[in-house]
Write a protein that binds this DNA or RNA. Structure first.
Lengths: 111, 111
DNA sequence: GCCTATCAGTTACTTTATGTAAGTTAGTTT
DNA sequence: AAACTAACTTACATAAAGTAACTGATAGGC
């Protein structure tokens, strides 16, 4: 009844419409980042960042590399599949600059 | 500390990364639709469909038109701002066809 | 008048996801 | 051995989403 939708598109939508995944990928499009850098770059908690990174790793979008230095360094980067999302985020950036208007409530959040 | 992100982009991200909004807009890119058509087109409940449509109307993305026929007909369509999201969804479609692979779990959902 | 049907929702209630804060592990420095 | 660091975990509270039954306006049939 309600599944004339392409399952691949549907899965892609579920992926990016999950809270934080979009912002995490957007951050990583800028280059590899460590856990603490991602945590500092947006108001996400360690718990969810950890959860999302695992999910994205499972989906083959994010790569996790362990450098056994001291203290240990772990870098997260985008795979080819992840990088392929670049144009999508460029589009979102473009749309947001052209159409999004900020109201009082939005400005409060960044106070 | 964690808000070097453009607030407009941030708001756009919040919008499309809210559950169902993406699919609703994608449906409406196809042309105006009634409440019951949207409800039938995806596995969303009336409660959330109603909530999301109100939010999207407030954001100026969706337009609600009442036709006082009998029984009443109400059509939801995209505004110019909403239509401007077309290319973004084209990108997502493109990426999903190129990169998304379906595993057992995904196939179960459509059973 | 009364019962039934349609469309577009709404209400009440349950389950799942997210937010918050404190704790853990492994190695290092003091 | 106490304290510090990075990268997580765990436990618990709150918010969002899911489910199903119900409402209101209007019309048609009996």
């Amino acid at each position: 009844m309600h599944d004339a939708i392409c399952p691949k598109f549907d899965k892609a939508m579920q992926l990016i419409s999950k809270r934080w995944t979009g912002l995490i990928i957007h951050q990583l499009l800028d280059g590899p980042k460590r856990f603490s850098q991602l945590e500092a770059a947006m108001p996400i908690s360690g718990r969810l960042l950890s959860e999302r990174l695992k999910e994205l790793e499972q989906e083959g979008i994010v790569h996790r590399e362990v450098y056994p230095e001291t203290p240990v360094r772990i870098e997260y980067s985008l795979t080819t599949k992840g990088c392929a999302l670049g144009p999508l985020f460029k589009e979102l950036e473009h749309w947001s600059h052209e159409w999004v208007t900020l109201d009082d409530a939005d400005l409060q959040e960044n106070a």
